[in-house]
Amino acid sequence: MTAKVAYESVEVGTELPARSFPVTRATLVQYAGASGDFNPIHWNEKFAREVGLPDVIAHGMFTMAEAIRVVTDWAGDPGAVVEYGVRFTKPVVVPNDDEGALIEVSAKVAALLDDKQVRVDLTAMSEGKKVLGMSRAVVRLA
């Protein structure tokens, strides 16, 4: 469990490389199969509208999985993630076209902790809306 980033090389405010993750209806079907979450709000437009949603929405756990990639790609070893939490604030709405939606994730070091650990605060946006709140990870650096 060794990250490739040295604890000494970062400070509060250090920005991690930002990433954008596309998500289409096909992505959601694939994620449903892999995760076992077959809730129809993630693939059935008629059902989604009937329960008051604007359209099919992405699984919150899919968005959570994408956001942490900014941290794991930076750290190198995903096993260096010690803690990860989010609040699902707004849904990622996924239209039925080739483009789908985009989840834009940025992150920066928010605190230096003991034991070579740092707290990273993440921001995940889609269509200009914050889709994750209180999104924080603790990662152990080298």
Binding site: M1, G60, M61, M64, P78, G79, V81, V82, E83, Y84, G85, V86, R87, F88, M134
Partner: peptide
């Protein structure tokens, strides 16, 4: 039911 928050604390992966 909707999913409000989610958090993990790992001892190991």
């Amino acid at each position: 039911v909707v999913h409000g928050d989610q958090k993990f604390v790992y001892v190991r992966p």
